[in-house]
């Protein structure tokens, strides 16, 4: 298998228990019409017998109402459908202890958000923002949220579908997996930098180059998988890890904050923490004035 790009549905089948995925089957979840946000695939599956919510991109679908939305793009309907799947999952397990809350498995293969005029008129930013908030809420409510990058995880679409997860795992770039804001060629053009020089610099500084390996060094990806056959095992292991960390209240090691800390450990983002430490120090010196105004 050379790539998993465009094969979100196949990826679901390779990861979850055999024939266990039931599309649109999440308690109380429904879509307004049959072809609603067809590129956003949501439903319930089992992983080693445990029920989980699956949210994936189907890059083969086109949205019949919003023509800029195809090939895995997350448009307005898609973002809200994904957010709704999350809220319904939270509600379904509202009375359960953290150890019993269903995981959310995000299968990521998206090249962007809807870039159209109608999208701007209505507010594309709200839809993707809504999904991010829903995932953050689920994560904070105790649901393990795991993102698996199988194809494209590009810029704002990755922010929306992936970067709010507890942990992120990715297929290696051998499988044409792409994680970036922009390809280096575009960055070079827009920032008026020399492409060869940027390419050379990226070996020592992972901060602008495209690819899962660079994100790994910045803490943006927890683990890189060397083959699609490894996905199921890797998902299982990371879900166990997330459950364990949540059980002992180490949520500081998870989510965007945890990845910030990981970025420091891996030497990719070392200024971030110093900035925050200095801010706290400076505030402490004047705190009284503001706390007792």
């Amino acid at each position: 298998m050379e790539t998993m790009m465009g094969q979100g549905r196949l990826a679901i089948d390779m990861i979850v228990d055999q024939d266990s995925f039931a599309e649109n089957q999440i308690p109380n979840f429904s879509v307004p019409c049959e072809d609603y946000a067809p590129g956003a695939v949501v439903g319930t599956a089992r992983i080693n017998g445990r029920e989980c919510t699956v949210i994936a991109n189907d890059a083969m679908e086109c949205n019949p109402r919003f023509p800029v939305v195809y090939a895995g793009i997350i448009g307005m309907e898609e973002g809200y459908k994904m957010a709704m799947a999350v809220y319904r999952s939270i509600e379904a397990d509202a009375d359960l202890p953290v150890a019993k809350k269903r995981p959310l498995l995000l299968i990521v293969d998206t090249p962007g958000n809807g870039p159209g005029k109608v999208e701007e008129i209505i507010g594309m930013n709200k839809s993707t923002g809504a999904y991010q908030l829903a995932l953050a809420e689920a994560r904070k409510a105790g649901h393990p949220v795991l993102a698996v990058v199988i194809g494209r995880a590009i810029s704002g679409a990755f922010l929306c579908h992936g970067l709010q997860a507890d942990q992120i795992i990715s297929l290696s770039s051998k499988y044409n997996t792409m994680i970036h804001v922009m390809p280096l060629t575009s960055i070079a053009r827009i920032t008026k930098q020399d492409l060869e020089r940027l390419t050379a610099l990226s070996t020592s500084n992972p901060v602008f180059a495209a690819g899962p390996e660079f994100f790994f060094r910045l803490g943006g990806v927890e683990e890189i998988m060397e083959s699609p056959q490894a996905m199921r095992e890797c998902v299982t292991r990371h879900l166990d890890d997330i459950y364990t960390l949540k059980a002992v209240n180490r949520t500081d090691k998870l989510g965007p904050w945890g990845r910030g800390e990981l970025g420091e450990q891996r030497g990719g983002r070392i200024t971030r923490k110093k900035v925050m430490a200095r801010m706290n120090e400076q505030f402490d010196a004047v705190a009284d004035r503001y706390l007792n105004a």
Binding site: G129, Q132, L133, A136, E137, K140, S155, G156, F158, L159, L163, Q164, H180, V181, M182, I187, I190, T191, Q193, P206, V207, F208, A209, F214, F215, L218, G219, G220, G255, P256, W257, R259, G260, G263, G268, R269, R272
Partner: peptide
């Protein structure tokens, strides 16, 4: 305009952290 392309990956990851903190303040 969002992410600073000269340090695009760090900028993107920072966006996710900002979002996470906003949810903390809800």
């Amino acid at each position: 305009g969002g992410v600073r392309l000269h340090e695009a990956n760090a900028g993107l990851l920072a966006h996710a952290e900002v979002m996470d903190q906003i949810q903390n303040l809800r």
